[in-house]
Nucleic acid binder design. Structure first.
Lengths: 132, 132
DNA sequence: CTGCAGATTGACGTTCACGTAAACGTAATG
DNA sequence: CATTACGTTTACGTGAACGTCAATCTGCAG
């Protein structure tokens, strides 16, 4: 009767603990229409899919995306639409996101280089102080 | 009497135009203590160094850093301190930033992969609709 | 049954990152 | 000289992303 390795459902508290956020935050994402957990009575019950969505939102956040941008990302996982025009619009958004990521990647590379230089100056300053 | 290629000073409007932000934003960054432009009378005069700082702030923004985090990044460029302890603390922060960037880099890689998959599903859906 | 931990729904508060507007100075231009 | 363009400070407004608190409702251990 151990806990199953692959849980199919999670409580709001479990998810909050797992991702290091508060339950308020999770409920807020639901208010924003990004999560639709099932209910056991009034209590929210989160599926593995809900967990994945939450993960996507948080990763988006780490990358500096707004919640509505993250929602776009989530929507890309459900080509539920059967409207060609909508799907093409989605495809465009995917390309836009990809380009945004490329820009970020570039920023990161530049910033890493600059951190390297900053570190060198730092180390040099330490050496200088040691000799003085 | 042409404009010099390397300007030593810039007006607030020039910078705003160059970076696609408003003058209000630039003044706000000054309020936050991240820029200290010289003054010609009351008018702000920005040096090339100020311009670089602004660039750093905006790059930080694109990477999802808060303004105070960006300020930390800026501080790394001026090992003005001659206090060994402070320099070492700075060095630590540089390492922390580097690790944060690594996490971001990882997030980006994952997200790119997921965008690839989303695109595939998208294309598949389009094909499907074409045959129907 | 009692009590208490943990869930829920409002509703209001807060911080960040600016926007917006008012009131004013200054310099060039027609 | 009047207008236009740009600059300044001061102050209040705003949207996003939650925090906090109160009131209420479960479920269950003792």
């Amino acid at each position: 009767m151990n806990a199953p390795i692959f849980q199919r459902s999670h409580s709001i508290r479990d998810l909050a603990r797992e991702f290091g956020i508060t339950t308020r935050t999770i409920r807020f994402y639901e208010e924003a229409g990004m999560l639709n957990p099932a209910r056991d009575g009034t209590t929210r019950v989160y599926s593995d899919q809900d967990r994945v969505k939450l993960k996507l939102i948080l990763r988006g956040k780490r990358l500096g995306f707004s919640l509505s941008e993250s929602r776009e990302l989530i929507d890309m996982y459900e080509p539920s639409s059967n409207n060609l025009k909508q799907i093409k619009a989605l495809h465009d958004k995917i390309e836009q996101r990809r380009e945004a990521l490329q820009r970020q990647l570039n920023d990161i590379r530049i910033m890493e280089k600059e951190l390297d230089e900053a570190e060198e100056r730092c180390i040099a300053a330490i050496q200088e102080l040691k000799r003085a």
